[in-house]
Amino acid sequence: MIEVTCNDRLGKKVRVKCNPDDTVGDLKKLIAAQTGTNWERIVLKKWYTIFKDHVTLADYEIHDGMNLELYYQ
């Protein structure tokens, strides 16, 4: 289990517990459940890389305690 912090810098900061073998899509769903938004509108970014839904967090080397940028589209 890892915990990832997602922050849109507009007033929402979510700490999500997830497995490393979860996909980015799963993470988005979790975030959506916690924040109450549509998961399909969520865009996760780290610098300029937009994380794609079908890739696992481990593959993106997203580790415990990492901060991700949260955007809405």
């Binding site: 289990m1 915990e3 922050n7 810098r9 507009l10 007033g11 929402k12 900061k13 979510v14 700490r15 999500v16 517990k17 997830c18 497995n19 979860d22 799963d26 769903k29 979790l30 459940a33 916690q34 924040t35």
Partner: peptide, 26 residues
């Protein structure tokens, strides 16, 4: 956070949520 609300769920909560979403537990 700059005044942002910090949301986090406990493990059980997360597991429940995961069950709803059809994901395996943590």
């Amino acid at each position: 956070g700059g005044g942002a609300e910090n949301l986090s769920l406990s493990i059980e909560e997360t597991n429940k949520l995961r069950a709803k979403l059809g994901l395996k537990p943590l």
